[in-house]
Design a protein around this nucleic acid. Structure first.
Lengths: 222, 222
DNA sequence: CGCGATCTGTAGCAAAAGCTACACGCTTTC
DNA sequence: GAAAGCGTGTAGCTTTTGCTACAGATCGCG
């Protein structure tokens, strides 16, 4: 029951009808993921819809030689749409999912979710909205990947992912994984950035020194 | 009215209720695209849902230096989901769309589509299914892009896009555009393929000579 | 304090990809 | 049948990226 309460902190699950709520309450399963736990493996059949309650999941692909690359993140209140996708089309999960930080996840069994989708406008909207958002993120990522060099992608990543104090707390190894490249490349690029006074680096973190300089790197035209 | 008939060749639009049909009939607009016509520009506000009746649309991104890269194709009976996406979230269109061959497209105005979505289960399913499919395609593409070299991507593209007779009728320039690279790179790779007896080339076309050899290139493990 | 583990900084070499330039052949067009 | 346009084949050079290797810095822990 506690998990149902957690889930109802989020908008779409508050508007459900009484019987839908009961249905949801019966099937719902909670799942705790420690940092770096693998939540879903590639090729695994998907058993339901995943809603992140707290923490953060990372969806990534893995190439034969071992390089990872982040496709996108799932933050609290968001649903793992890839799972949704597989759910509606009976596909195997096409990527890997790992907990970035310790996370709590609610698992709605496939059959239950499908029923909810048929009945509840809120769930239909949630589904469409989640899918749309993912499409948009994937498009942007795909565009970034082939219109820009690692230099630009790195600058962009630092700008987008850094905390509000302008500091990105992440090791170079992790950075490399997100960008789908190697630590050496990241170190090389960061050396340039430091030389130009754009950022400063220390163990486990990167601090932005020249915000606008970085932005110019990302979009040279403006 | 003729366009409505065309549209109803496709499953989801046959199951509509009487009033939905009327609503659809009133707003529907037909659009002819000649080969190489630009159907949608990047940044353009989206005025409705696009359903391809005949021909083929190509969705691609364009980088500052002029290189194109195909994101995915839209074949007859399919809907341009990106447009859907923008429609539901009030976004500007994030890519370019061009007619690969002469195409006929039905344009369902945004307001009409939203109403249909609220009422008709068939349209809800269509929407979710279309979005799901796109997500899947984008994921695959994204995975391909950063797990494989141009050599593998080219081999893959030839395998997937060639006609049933094993011939891909496309210039090297076009190939390069789809892969997001330059003609010279494509020519260089094809030279290797020809040397290994995998394909043969002639003006405007590439013929597969060794199907399994090509497949081994794409997925070396199997 | 010492030790192992982790993270960063650098260097050098090899492979991949991009860019420029040009020769040649086939089509279309005037 | 000459000229222009398009498509292919090739070469050489530069930049970017990937891989291997190693040195030094920092951290946590017993």
């Amino acid at each position: 029951m506690k998990i149902l309460d957690e889930l109802q902190r989020f908008e779409p699950f508050r508007k459900l009808g009484e019987d839908s709520r009961t249905l949801l309450g019966q099937g719902l399963v909670g799942k705790q993921c420690a940092r770096a736990d693998m939540a879903l493996h590639k090729g695994q059949p998907v058993s339901g819809a995943y809603v992140v309650l707290s923490g953060r999941l990372r969806v990534f692909s893995l190439s034969p030689n071992g390089t990872e690359a982040t496709l996108y993140f799932i933050d609290p209140g968001e649903t793992c749409v890839l799972a949704l996708n597989c759910l509606f089309n009976d596909l195997l999960y096409p990527a890997w999912v790992q907990a970035e930080t310790a996370s709590q996840v609610a698992l709605i069994p496939g059959a239950v979710y499908r029923k909810l989708f048929e009945r509840e406008t809120a769930i239909q909207n949630l589904t469409v909205h989640t899918l749309s958002t993912l499409v948009f993120r994937l498009m942007s990522e795909l565009e970034l990947v082939h219109t820009s060099h690692h230099k630009q992608r790195l600058a962009n990543f630092i700008l987008i992912q850094s905390a509000s104090d302008g500091v990105l707390r992440m090791t170079q190894q992790q950075l490399a994984q997100h960008l789908g490249t190697t630590r050496e490349v990241v170190a090389r690029l960061l050396r340039d950035f430091v030389a130009k006074g754009l950022v400063s680096t220390c163990r486990g973190a990167i601090a932005i020194r020249d915000l606008f300089g970085l932005r110019r790197l990302v979009s040279p035209g403006e």
